[in-house]
Design a binder for these strands. Structure first.
Length: 574
RNA sequence: CGGGGCGUAGCGCAGUCUGGUAGCGCACCACACUGGGGGUGUGGUGGUCGUAGGUUCAAAUCCUGCCGUCCCGACCA
């Protein structure tokens, strides 16, 4: 490819609204342009990368026995009413009417459509298992689109759905998909971890996320330093610590804390570490019957710990989504303001975290404004109704797998696989006849990869001051040919053209910077910004010695290579 | 949804407080010089100052509404 025939839209300056490095570099390298919030145009350079990611995904999916289909972006409301998600899905689902006033939505995902398709096409257990996938545009009207294509409203996803006669079959395909995802991300060249995950709004049972480790990630991943265990922090279990062996101080002491409300303030005031305090959070509970108001429930965690909202809202006593009680209601029903609450004679259900239960001689609110109690103990003055794991794990916590300590890092979710079970197939009547002629609801799995997000994630993980450093497998071009004074030297022009033709014929994606009077400095800066893995510079000085300069994108220095051997050497490196 | 910032040329910004001819750098076009890391000079192209209304002799500038966009916030006991 010649640069004069290909839009190189690089920019020297970073657009002011780009915050994360991948977004900045994608704009500067001329890969994408914003059309509107969360909507992006892909320029030729960006699309080239996107297509390479897609090709790898397709190749591995096909190898794993999945079949490609293509379903519409626009989906009829009826299907979503059948599954129940027309009601459940919030404002993220964009709905509209056609000219006949029929309701439709823009597909944020395709479970309904594939289930409809499969229930009509598959009739026998003999056709199972079946695994279908597509690479298709999705639209989710995100509350807050951000970070460029990392979290955009319109994006491209590879979504796959498998159908089974029983759980064993689903598990087998799920395992294959797990391996396939590892193969895909390895091939792309990402540093990633599969992690145990929550199933979220898609529903179902078992689930793994695939995270690219990067500081800009929006998720916290906890993983063991001495085993394969890894989980989204939402899911990572905090093990019960050993009961504190501190001797119980028999007499608690009420102390005035007139202006100390937060844990930090109280702990500092008492000259005590925050892990010697307990905090009590008041949330709304599940109603016992329809008529009454949602009861208040107290959640107690150690002062240095943070509440895991997902764990909390899964408890039967707690209303989902987790909602904190209003200051007014707390004042009215408990007669105390936020900042002085403690698990002392509370007239409501009180759920204590495992670590809170193990504490001795702790400081907690006195349920009287401006007072806390020192040397409180569950054995003496404090009470809980039940114990649960409701906190987030922290760096250094023991791993729930039993081996090693947990470390927490940020991750970008690029893939997610679920065992859906019969959530959709049952609701939508997707059945086949089993071996004994009985109508049987199919069991489903679903498997997603954020294609557009993978591109951004790859950049987050591979960049330097000069720009992007593409992993070889998804680089828009493998080799850049940079001529020096091509317009003055026939030798340079001819050599570059010959190298370009040879490499192209060998199937190498090569970009020749053929702008006649381009400055060397700006060409090199572009090649580095765009992130092309291999670069050769052709000039008269080198050619006089039958040499051509080579530099890998990550190399410190360039080296001179024999002109006659350079094509072979490049082919080896690619 | 709440809070905050910003909207002036493709990009980055100044000008707004204190109303008076719309500017700078990059990019782009032409010419010349230069020629191994975003070079220099000369001359150019390009803007209904987000939008609608108001105040005024006069509005990018002051006032009001709207729109767009970005950031922060769902850990407070």
């Amino acid at each position: 490819m010649r640069a004069t025939q290909f839009l190189i839209a690089t920019q020297k300056e970073t657009p002011s609204d780009a915050v994360v490095i991948s977004h900045q570099l994608m704009l500067r390298a001329g890969m994408i342009r914003k059309l509107s919030s969360g909507l992006y145009c892909w320029l030729p350079l960006g699309l080239k990368v996107l297509r390479k990611v897609e090709a790898i995904v397709r190749d591995e999916m096909n190898k794993a026995g999945a079949q490609e289909v293509l379903m519409p972006i626009v989906q009829p409301a009826e299907l979503w009413e059948e599954s129940g998600r027309w009601e459940q899905y919030g404002a993220e689902l964009t709905r509209f009417n056609d000219r006949h006033t029929n309701s439709f939505c823009l597909g944020p995902t395709h479970e309904e459509v594939i289930t409809d398709l499969v229930r009509n096409e598959l009739k026998s257990y003999k056709q199972l298992p079946a695994n279908f996938y597509q690479v298709q545009t999705k639209f989710r009207d995100e509350v807050r689109p951000r970070f460029g294509v990392m979290r955009s409203r319109e994006f491209i996803m590879k979504d796959g759905y498998s159908f089974h006669i029983d759980q064993d079959s689903l598990q087998a395909t799920y395992d294959v998909m797990h391996e396939t995802y590892c193969a895909i991300f390895n091939r792309i060249g990402l540093n990633f971890r599969p992690v145990e995950a929550d199933t979220g709004s898609i529903g179902g049972s078992a689930s793994h996320e695939f995270h690219v480790l990067a500081e800009s990630g929006e998720d916290d991943i906890a993983f063991s330093d001495s085993s394969d265990f890894a989980a989204n922090i939402e899911m990572a279990e905090a093990l019960a610590p050993a009961q504190s062996d501190e001797a119980i101080i028999g007499t608690s002491k009420t102390i005035a804390t007139p202006s100390q409300k937060t844990i930090e303030e109280v702990a500092a005031f008492c000259d005590s570490p925050t892990d010697k305090t307990l905090k009590t959070l008041i949330v709304l509970g599940e109603k016992n019957d329809e008529s009454e108001e949602q009861p208040l429930v107290a959640l107690v965690v150690r002062g240095d710990h943070t509440l895991n909202e997902l764990k909390a809202e899964k408890l039967p006593e707690i209303s989902s989504p987790l909602t904190f009680a209003s200051e007014e209601r707390i004042q009215k029903e408990l007669g105390v303001s936020i900042g002085s609450i403690g698990p002392i004679n509370l007239p409501i259900t009180t759920i204590a975290d495992r670590s809170a239960v193990a504490a001795r001689n702790f400081i907690c609110g006195a349920n009287q404004d401006g007072f806390h109690i020192q040397n409180s103990n569950w054995e003496t003055n404090a009470q809980f109704s039940s114990i649960a794991d409701i906190r987030n794990v922290e760096n250094g916590d023991p791993s729930p797998c039993g081996n090693g300590q947990l470390h927490i890092k940020r991750g970008i979710e690029v893939g997610h696989i679920f065992q859906l079970g019969d959530k959709y197939s049952k609701a939508m009547g997707a059945t086949v006849l089993s071996e004994n002629g009985k109508e049987t609801v199919m069991t489903m799995g679903c498997y997603g990869i954020g294609i557009t997000r993978v591109v951004a994630a790859a950049i987050e993980q591979n960049n330097d001051d000069a720009g992007i450093i593409w992993p070889s497998a998804i680089a828009p071009f493998q080799v850049a040919i940079v001529p020096i004074n091509m317009h003055k030297s026939d030798a340079v022009a001819d050599t570059c053209q010959a190298l370009h033709d040879q490499l192209s014929a060998a199937g190498v994606d090569v970009l020749m910077l053929d702008e006649p009077k381009a400055r060397l400095g700006s060409m090199l800066a572009d090649v580095e910004l765009i992130g092309i893995p291999h670069r050769i510079v052709v000039g008269d000085r080198g050619l006089a010695n039958n040499e051509i300069e080579y530099k890998g994108r990550r190399d410190e220095d360039s080296q001179m290579l024999n002109k006659d051997e350079i094509v072979d050497l490049l082919m080896q490196k690619i």
